[in-house]
Design a protein around this nucleic acid. Structure first.
Lengths: 229, 229
DNA sequence: ATTACTTAGTGTAAAAAATACACGCTATAT
DNA sequence: ATATAGCGTGTATTTTTTACACTAAGTAAT
């Protein structure tokens, strides 16, 4: 039982739900495993935590290995520790979600050592996943649904310059419902964290939309709106 | 480095922020440690996870050992894994908060083996804590502040029968602000999860208030209220 | 029994936020 | 010139939130 798992003393791992937004769809990155257990299954990217790295460092490393990027927005959200979640022994897994800009220039085609290949898959059409990764994904999905209502994380999925329609698409696909265009724009602009770049899209085969940028300095003004007394 | 920590293969532990509401104050349970490291320091109750128990089971066990109770409301909220958070080696700690009815009958006076004594301490007046427990406490405090606005967790801190004033006190002490009595009652009753017991307090030296009960069957109706589009 | 005291319990008006809803504009493609 | 596809805009209604103060009921002391 113990021979496979622990490098050093660690029996904990990181699993990442890496979200990307592309072609109007919310996608996550899945790897096809090249190792037992669950060889040939689809799984969330993840790995064991090294002895000398914090959990955040480990997640950062894993994401870097997958994508080559090192400034990915990322957050720990839950730890899965059922006794039998890993068929070969006790592995507690700390789950992170991460948000990545997929649009346009940087095309991420990740391949890593423990995976045959990695693909972006629409969250609405996922294959069966290894281990308890379905559960890990679902909890991550819930988290970002909730988080997007309080924190300016939608911008992490978009290129630096984006249109309000693109932004609305991100909200719609994460919340899984249609939003009213005028009300959406009114509210978004009312937060005062979007800077109008006085610049238009180009290369589109229809009327070009205004480009906006997320203004990080004003971001603190975006408070939670919750049950209020 | 390894000689002290791992029973089996486990280098993870559970730490619990156990909240109670008493005398109008929000309190947490602290133990005075009887072991190195941090002998004689105040700390959150916690322990190593056993090989054959899930994280939730482990937290349940720890809470049971402390209080003798086994139906405590409890939730995992974050995992702390800095490399040097434990001076004697790598210990990743999964944090839970828990909410306990302190009122009246059940007086909890917990003593356990690794602790000299345990005390309820007002969250507004905490001593210096061992390890990174200050940070763990603060994150737990943030979590319940947020959670109480979405989920009916306030009731977990009150006796089964309670008055609206007591309920308001719980909200006030967790949110750390005064609320308007009429607006509070209006909103609480509007959720439709309180059952009027047609019963009054007694033994109080002033006008007795109506007692209410949390109606679990209607609880699902209490939706999140957040930024809405 | 009168009085003083303490907490319970109640309503309304004003402000703010959320919602529902439709059409002219503009750039591109043919 | 014209068709097309997405851009960009305002108002009226409803709902929610907020602010605000007095009477009622019971207890305790005299």
């Amino acid at each position: 039982m113990k021979e496979i798992l622990p490098k050093f003393n660690s029996t904990f791992s990181i699993d990442c739900v890496l979200f990307g937004f592309d072609e109007g769809e919310l996608k996550i990155l899945l790897i096809e495993r090249n190792e037992e257990p669950f060889k040939d299954w689809w799984a969330l990217p993840g790995n064991l935590v090294e002895e000398d790295e914090s959990l955040d460092q480990s997640a950062t490393r894993i994401l870097h290995e997958l994508t080559g990027l090192s400034d990915i927005y990322m957050e720990q959200y839950y730890t899965f520790g059922d006794v039998n979640r890993h068929p070969q022994g006790r592995v507690v897994s700390i789950a992170y979600y991460a948000l990545l800009r997929l649009g346009g220039d940087k095309v991420v085609k990740p391949i890593s050592n423990y995976a045959k290949q990695a693909y972006w898959r629409n969250v609405k059409d996922l294959p069966k996943l290894a281990f308890d990764h379905q559960q890990i994904f679902e909890k991550g999905m819930e988290k970002i649904k909730r988080r997007i209502k309080h924190q300016p994380i939608a911008f992490e999925l978009l290129p630096e310059k984006f249109t309000l329609t693109q932004l609305q698409n991100v909200y719609e696909v994460i919340l899984n419902k249609k939003l009213d265009k005028r009300n959406f724009r009114k509210k978004m602009l009312s937060f005062g964290v979007l800077r109008d770049l006085n610049e238009k899209q180009y290369g589109v085969s229809f009327r070009a939309a205004t480009l906006y940028k997320f203004d990080k300095r004003k971001y603190a003004k975006l408070f939670s709106k919750e049950i209020s007394f």
